Computed example of a mutant assay.
Amino acid sequence: MKLPVSTEWVLHCATTMAQLAPGTTVSAAQLAEYYDLPAPYLAKQLQALVRAGVLAATTGPRGGFRLARPAGEITLLAIVEAVDGASAPYECREIRQRGTGALPQEDCRNACVLARKMADAHDAWRRTLAADTLADIVASLPPSAPARTRSRLPQRR
């Protein structure tokens, strides 16, 4: 499965926000500069996280983005699905029933074994992402990381 580069961006940005003091906001421009990313495109991705209830946004001179819930309540799956959707990446088109190699209809009553295996893999991937929260990720960072992040990223309250 290949995800868009924007998925990496929002995962890192959400992890960064999880390292800040609760209620602290950071602008899209600040995050873009922090990671050397294109600000307008990053802002669109962050808005997708707002629509999904992962982030909250405020406007005005002290506005920006912040986590909408505690980091322990935000799973990696919620972030990924906010920007990439929840649909399975594999769609069986029943090619086993086409062409000169077509199987008889009676041999195709059950779902294709390949479709089942791909669905199992997608379910396992989703379970793995659903099992980890931003708090888990922050807890696995080097102990100095949150303080370093706070010192390098101007914060607004």
Rank of each mutant, 00 (worst) to 15 (best):
P40E: 07
A39H: 05
R66V: 05
A111F: 03
E94D: 14
A21G: 13
T149K: 03
R69N: 02
R51V: 07
V26A: 10
S144D: 15
R69F: 01
R98F: 01
L46N: 04
G60N: 12
P38C: 13
M17C: 12
D120K: 05
S144F: 09
T75S: 15
Y41Q: 08
R93T: 00
V5Y: 06
R157G: 07
Q47N: 11
K44P: 00
M118K: 00
A18Y: 01
A82H: 03
M17E: 08
Q47F: 04
W125E: 02
Q155C: 11
T75Q: 13
A130I: 11
L37F: 13
I74E: 07
S6A: 14
S27I: 08
P4C: 02
R148M: 06
Q19I: 10
A119H: 07
M17K: 04
A130K: 03
E81F: 13
A52Y: 02
D123M: 11
S27L: 09
A124C: 11
Q97D: 10
L31V: 04
P40D: 15
P143K: 06
W9R: 07
P142T: 12
S27H: 06
R96I: 05
V113R: 03
L37D: 12
D36R: 05
A119T: 08
Q30F: 00
L37Q: 03
L141I: 13
P70S: 01
P154T: 10
E33W: 02
R127T: 09
A28W: 00
E91Y: 05
C13D: 03
L37K: 01
T15N: 07
Y35S: 08
L42Q: 04
R93Q: 07
P40I: 09
T58M: 00
T59Y: 04
A86R: 09
R126N: 00
A135P: 03
G53K: 05
L67S: 10
A56M: 09
F65N: 02
T133Y: 13
I74C: 01
A52C: 14
V26I: 15
G85K: 04
D36N: 01
C13S: 08
S27C: 09
L31W: 00
P61F: 01
D132G: 11
L31I: 09
Q97R: 15
V10P: 02
L77T: 10
W9Q: 04
Q105Y: 10
A14H: 07
A78C: 10
R66M: 14
A18G: 11
E94V: 06
A56Y: 01
T25P: 00
D107C: 14
A145M: 12
